[in-house]
Design a protein around this nucleic acid. Structure first.
Lengths: 358, 358
DNA sequence: TCCTCCAACGTCAACGTTGACGTAACTGGC
DNA sequence: GCCAGTTACGTCAACGTTGACGTTGGAGGA
């Protein structure tokens, strides 16, 4: 049942002894290199099979000249976040095609933790890394990059030079969303955003500003709520917005969980059919809510694929100047973003009052 | 900008030369072993820092007696599936506490692919594995286990002896769900299930049968639809159910995506307020739909944590008999599972007709 | 004073594999 | 029949690190 003791894994030496050849010949056979006659090949293969021999990649990569570990590191913010998970999966798919395995880690948007994970990866001599940079300084990333480690940043660009990145059209997408809302007559469009330290948050906010400007609308500071970490914060922030004397008639929620929080609040006040809403980031079941939630969808598999393509190109020795790929986000119209301005003010007011009387 | 050529990573020898000590002494300092005086320690540390030295875990684990790679493998079905992602994250958290990194892979429920990934992990000499066994034969897993690799199966138990596992109360949870529906007066309760090759599907189906039996209900073969892979298949199957002369009045959907597909169909026919629904597996936003979706929630973090605890215990040398941990699933009542039997037949009929007239 | 013991180093070989290079046997051309 | 060229092996050392064991010098006890 339980394997007795730590049974030693068979080595090339064991195979060589059984096949009555030198270890070098075993190496040749295992790696399909020329220089071994057909009978010897067969003998070695048989011996390897008999012993259950499996090469030790650790030893191999130590000795090989290219020093490849056939492993890359993928450092994201939180592997349990669907966005990160989809990214990881896309990278993994390409890794598999390259016979490479993936070491995954969650940096929790903590620069210190990210530094530790980076060191762990370096210690294992990964061939390259795909990293979602944590907010704050990117010193550790830059240092790693300067040592020559192939690295591609996803979702957020590097704050230093010479490194590839893959991002989404955060700014343009956000601007388009705001323009769409403005086109429907909305003049009080609120912005609800994630932590301001995040580059994506800033970009989306900039897109919001651009959208307002293009539409000839003025920015109402009171309609901007940022640093909302998680749905609960977003829910609270939304409630505050609707307690204003002049509440917004449309919301632009700049992140996944923020969208969810805002929806919760709208629903609680019965405003979900009267207040327009467009969110950044798609999420499962967005189409099954009432109304369906209009979102800017990032092409996550494309992001991951592109990032992986870039690392593998670098690993293969591509020395061309750094690429900054941008994958377009597309507006998915489902209803919530198509609610027009002259919305049923009376209804919403009534609901608000009903809510407040609790 | 671009690091010139493949700059060689500094080694212990380089550090030793700079600090004017032997490599062995460097080793002692790096590993915090006794046998180095305070001044030497300082000199070595300074040299290491100056050169940017980082130990090579590959070489280290080759030479060390315990042969640890400080890496475990986690083979799930699909890393982009929220369930799998949450599992991975839970394992990763515990791994971090043990200073271990995680090699992750998606086996796509393909035994052959799983075998390849297993070999890849073995080749890298991981210290242990957490595996969601693919359907079909588990020969490769068993062989790996028999070689002595610490291994824990999650979500599905092993078909062979001597291996730890962590699963959910699939059967009991399903039975309780059916009993709840029966308790509300439902007599025609349909079962919609995933691929029958999956152990979890079978268990949930068995629980369904048990529930019917306990409630004194007879099984209607026509109300059982299995092998639904993905939401679309589930949606079609649901439509077929409601085209029956005597459609069900309640649904038990035995998996995540199946639940979503069934809901889509119910919604399309306007039946979501009249047909009861309980699903296995929770999903985000289940509470925001109308009605809220009643589900059996698995404690995914607990599953992952337990699995990780078990591997690390085995890695640490625990030789006690295999554990088969079972984590309870809990019924989360949100509305859809609380719809009573004498439901508004007229309304639903009307909707059905309206739909069909398209 | 001499011997013991210990701390603080160093030397050497080995982990499992492969690059560089050596060598024997065979092939083919003249 | 001899030599160049090729094929099929083998030998040796090295990758970066650490376990086993050696050496040195000084502290401390009889």
């Amino acid at each position: 049942m339980e394997a007795r003791g730590a049974r030693r894994e068979p080595t090339m030496r064991d195979v060589a002894a059984l096949a009555k050849v030198s270890t070098k010949t075993v190496s040749r056979v295992i790696n399909d290199l020329p220089g071994a006659g057909p009978e010897v090949v067969e003998r070695v293969r048989a011996a390897a099979r008999a012993l259950g021999y499996r090469p030790n990649l650790t030893a191999s990569s130590l000795r090989r000249s290219d020093r490849r570990s056939a492993t890359i590191g993928v450092l994201l913010e939180d592997l349990s976040n669907p966005f990160d998970a989809a990214l990881l999966r896309a990278v993994e798919d390409l890794a598999r095609q390259n016979d490479v395995l993936v070491l995954a880690g969650s940096s929790e948007d903590d620069a210190e933790l990210q530094r530790e994970l980076l060191t762990s990866l370096a210690t294992r001599r990964v061939d390259g890394m795909v990293v979602m940079a944590a907010g704050g300084h990117q010193d550790a990333l830059q240092q790693e990059r300067e040592r020559g480690t192939p690295m591609v940043l996803v979702d957020r660009p590097p704050t230093f030079d010479g490194t590839d990145s893959v991002t989404t059209t955060n700014r343009d997408g956000s601007r388009d969303a705001v323009l769409q809302l403005a086109g429907l007559g909305h003049r009080r469009i609120a912005f609800l955003g994630d932590r301001r330290t995040l580059w994506t948050s800033q970009e989306r906010y900039n897109g919001y500003l651009e959208g307002l400007a293009h539409a000839g609308l003025t920015l109402h500071e009171g309609l901007v709520r940022t640093d909302l970490h998680g749905p609960d914060a977003a829910e609270n922030a939304t409630e505050i917005l609707f307690d204003l004397e002049e509440p917004p008639t449309a919301l632009f929620t700049a992140q996944n969980l923020v969208t969810v929080g805002a929806m919760r609040a709208l629903r609680a006040r019965g405003l979900h059919h009267s207040v327009a809403l467009i969110g950044f980031d798609d999420f499962p079941l967005a189409d099954m809510l009432e109304p369906g939630v209009t979102v800017l969808r990032q092409d996550v598999p494309a992001l991951g694929r592109k990032a992986a393509e870039l690392v593998f190109a670098r690993i293969a020795g591509d020395h061309s100047p750094p690429t900054h790929a941008v994958v377009p986000a597309t507006l998915i119209r489902r209803g919530s973003g198509e609610i027009q301005f002259p919305n049923d003010r009376d209804d919403s007011r009534a609901d608000v009052l009903a809510q407040q009387s609790r």
